[in-house]
Design a protein around this nucleic acid. Sequence first.
RNA 1: GCUCCCGUAGCUCAGUUGGAUAGAGCAACAGCCUUCUAAGCUGUGGGUCGCACGUUCAAGUCGUGCCGGGGGUACCA
Length: 670
Amino acid sequence: MTLIEIQEILREVVRTTAKNEFGVELKQVAAETPPKTELGDIAFPVAFELAKLIKQATGEKKNPREIAEVLRSKLSAAQMVGRVEVAGAGYLNVFFDRPTFLSANAAAEPLPNEFRSSQPDAIKVCVEHTSVNPNKSAHIGHVRNSVLGDTFQRILKATGKRVEIQNYIDNTGVQVADVVVGFIYLENKDLAAIKDLDAQLKAVGKTFDYYCWDLYTKVGVEYQMSEELKLKRAEVLHLIEEGGNPTAELADFVATRNVECILDTMARLSIQYDLLPRESEILHLHFWDRAFEQMKSLGVIHYETEGKQAGCWVMPFEEHAGNDENETDKILVRSNGTVTYTGKDIAYQMWKLGILGLDFNYRPFHKYKDGHEVWITTSDSNASVHPAFGGGETIYNVIDSRQSYPQDIVRKGVAAISPERGEKASIHLSYEMVALSPAAAEELGFAMSDEDRKRPFIEMSGRKGLGVKADDLIDRLEANALAEVESRHADSSEEVKNGIAHQLAVGALRYFLLKFTRNTVIVFDFKEALSFEGETGCFCQYSAVRANSIFRKLDEKGETVDQCRERIAENAATLELFATDAGSDIWSMAILASRLEEAIEQAAKQNEPAILAKYTFTLAKAFNLFYHNHKILIEPDEVKRAVLVVVADMARRSLTSALATMGIEVPEKM
RNA sequence: GCUCCCGUAGCUCAGUUGGAUAGAGCAACAGCCUUCUAAGCUGUGGGUCGCACGUUCAAGUCGUGCCGGGGGUACCA
């Protein structure tokens, strides 16, 4: 029985008692974790609320402690409950029957390294993340998006959902056009020359996306000096959108190569996708036209004949509720007939929810090392067999908070077309940006003015080439980790050492980006991001590695966890053990390890992966202390050793599983 | 102007949706490797939770008003 199941049983007891004894209906029964283990395993501050409700219903004034006493006797009889205390002004503190909980609960579910498998008929949801413009390499800000999205996706799977992961490719936007302008007009390259360049870059171990990063910056500078070049941009953009011409073909190569590079970068961090929906298909398969027709016939949008927005199709949007002066119309179709991003996104989101009435064509794009295949949309003929994509019950869009205004419009637009699904079907998983400290920007070689230096942070900018590139940071992390591994395990093979260094680098970066809550601006600091000490992924991994090495030795001795569990069940002496101070800290380790499911559910409910990160760190820290205080292998008391083994096993299972849910592996050794 | 977010220890951040004595990491200082891995552990110092009212058994958390910082408010995305 899991902790959550016990909690649910106890809630029900509280509910029925409130009804039968006091005639009060409780809608929700709040359960909380007491601040200290000595205060119990689950607490119900419900007596305060009941006192108020009873007074409202009957006029009778009851003391919360009096009410708590009634609940106490009922709760004491419940399954798995050892005893219940009334504390403070009326807290109900429930203490579990520890030996029973340990011997029954620790059943070795295959949690570590795999998620709870979702059934084929489970609810399907879509998570869109990454969505980097395919015209340059990814920087650390993009990685925050991807790590958040990927971790959230893992969390959803852990709660039993079926998840489809999409990475939207804006292959026909101005950003791609800018790099294409650079290739054609600054470097006089045609498609053949670019392919040649790509091959040359590969030969010297450089990547196409890095080259584009620099070129993109260069184009930005040139625009400032040449109006003529700016005109070229419009021309190129038009050709790309139209398709079926050499410029579009060139752009397609550039965008696709960048997508490949970005996928490689993300794969280094254990981030994979199921589908890459492309903007070119939204256009060429007339997704927008379909959405446009629906919006017109429903009267959601109208054609503006006068004023600033004359000639545009607009959607009314109340920017600020209750202030009709500020009502504005959002343009979906420009006066030149082209569709804005917001318009295209409405069509895309409708497809994601399965309410557009059109589908993409698909072809396989890339096969990951583990065999997983990522598909891409195409305007060409469909692959004969392809998975069913789209049609999610809920869609999660991982997009930074600077875009919450357009996201709001998209959501309202979709809801206007499909009121039965409504706004709740589409969730904007927003997060604050990753910025640079002025010092970090200078470290990257950017000249800072005095004014810049006074700023709390400097926004990264792909256009200016200002940012920490993801691959550079991962490289640095791997190099640092390798040096540490080298100093500890010099005799291991290069392959093993590199593998461990890689796992540590991934752990460090993913944890670093997950420990902040979504609405905290991360001011990037090299020292902090490169650290392997303190609150880091490495710390959590180290804790799990130490735990595993205990079980390796235990295995050599031929002692199993199941034997230990039986020994606990057979020995009432364990009760006495837990009454001592030494026992109390063992128990708090056990109960903390049991809270993983709760942490994952909370993270899913609040759309906040940081909750899981904090739990994982707390668990790792607790285990390090436990490890320090108890020498498990040499513990002479058989029963105590059994308890220590079972508790350590619970801890390593939760720890491994928590890390896996964050996309972090536990190394063999470190 | 309007709107959203942030303000908690020297620094960077948590704070279980209103609960028990406000917690971590970093930095500083003092200790701990003959013991399952010291990427670890222990201890010390460090707080007017931006300010002021209010709501109630209870406020870092909710409301109102200020102060300070940032984002958004495009026929960009």
